[in-house]
Amino acid sequence: MNMLEIKQLDVWFGHGHNRVDAVKGAEFSVPEGESFGLVGESGSGKSTILRAITGLAPEWSGGITVNGERLGKQRRKSFYKTVQMVFQDPYASLHPRHSVDQVLGETLALHGFRDIDARVVKLLDDVGLGQKFRFRYPHQLSGGQRQRVAIARALAPEPKLLLLDEPTSALDVSVQAEILNLLVDLRKDRGLTYLMVSHDLSVVGHMCDRLAAMRHGEIVEIMDVAALRGMQAQHAYSQELLQASV
């Protein structure tokens, strides 16, 4: 079964003369348990697809089906229990005045969990942060630690589909590998489905089973990772991408 199906998706910002079409006719599907990558240069509309799925980009048309349920303009509470997102910049995605405990506790409370204390401890262990980080504030954490907190927050409602918006591009190279390995392990343990946006082909090659190359808001080619590794892209633009990343 497909966890995510995107059909003829258009996303735009603004009206009339100011209208910018960020995504044009995107179409792909991600089976349950797969890790799917979206690659392309900046401004190609990869992140906008994620924002349209989560409802953060309100103006879109076409079809988005998550876990067999077709999405309308409004997102239901059950949607947020199925789909969660990890943002690009861990320095911007945590509230500066909320401790780790508050961030995770509030998320758990919003999803109606009762055993919040036990779950906060468990989540911190799952993402490789110990108990001692529980009552720290974001300014007392490093970038990698913050991203682990953000991942813990995304895992709190026990989602099936995780949207990853360049989760390591704001981090140091050494920390990037740690976070990517954590994500690989989490997917294995929990049977998660990933939709990952990145401009880094080596990251996508490490993390994903299939990928779509995007340019100017359009998907130019969908290929599997074996083709990526063998440098066997069909479309001229994806060949260009591959050449540039060598």
Binding site: T54, G55, L56, R75, K77, Y80, Q84, M85, F87, Q88, D89, A92, S93, L94, H95, P96, E106, T107, L110, H111, A150, R153, A156, P157
Partner: peptide, 13 residues
Amino acid sequence: SSDYISAIKLQGA
């Protein structure tokens, strides 16, 4: 418009 507000919106707040 910051990410942490988007993040809490995604928890259904």
